[in-house]
Design a protein around this nucleic acid. Structure first.
Lengths: 114, 114
DNA sequence: CTTGATGTATCGTATAACCATATATGGCTA
DNA sequence: TAGCCATATATGGTTATACGATACATCAAG
């Protein structure tokens, strides 16, 4: 079946919310974030690296996450990102936004959410 | 507060689902669809005409909706769109996709849906 | 020594939203 | 009767962005 494009677009809109959520309780590096999203969604959500990394840079440039390089023997260097104070506020706002949108869409599209 | 862009992106992804849903039971014209989405979402969802009309043309080009010009005295001509058989199948698939995504995002982002 | 998983990075291209603007009609009001 | 608002459709040009492809780098497994 042809991809409806809806799924792709949906990923775009929720990308920031997903990333901010994952670095909420602890610092994580890019690759880990990508894998976590894929795994926890059961393969439903999957980010291309060419989308994921630029997104991380953007979030850092906005001051919502803070990156730190970590070198460890026997490993490629990783950049760990953690949520900033400003990012925490944004995350809270985005969670509310998400719920509002999900409710509105479900109502108009006639989708019942469990 | 600065727009987080999440809301804008979310609209993009759900636009097709919303439109297909609104022309499911009866034919509607563009302006009406725009107003319905805005009204039924309580202002949360709002489409720019420069996004809405091209989207309608795209959906029609794909054969998911079928447009028909209707002239009526004392009114500007309107183009009424109705769901096609192919569109009905797509709508069903998109509803399923939407539910799957909403569940995945809520799970990862730690958002509880009522 | 080749393959695959891990890990970060980006060029180029295609897609698409939307601002601004245009056209057209009817009703209300000053 | 001129102005403005709601209705209704249409699009050129700008801008943002996702992602395929590709690159580089390290280590384990076979």
């Amino acid at each position: 079946m042809a991809t409806t494009r809806l799924d792709r677009e949906l990923k775009k809109g929720s990308a920031e919310l997903l990333i901010l959520s994952l670095v909420e309780t602890r610092a994580r590096h890019g690759y880990e974030i990508g894998k976590l999203i894929e795994d926890r969604s059961g393969g439903t959500l999957k980010f291309n690296v060419a989308s994921l990394y630029p997104l991380l840079y953007r979030l850092e440039a906005r001051g919502w996450i803070q990156g730190r390089w970590v070198d460890k023997a026997g490993q490629r260097r990783r950049r760990y990102y953690k949520l900033t104070v400003a990012g925490r506020k944004v995350l809270g706002a985005q969670r509310t936004t998400w719920q509002t949108f999900a409710a509105a869409i479900s109502r108009i599209a006639g989708v019942q959410h469990a």
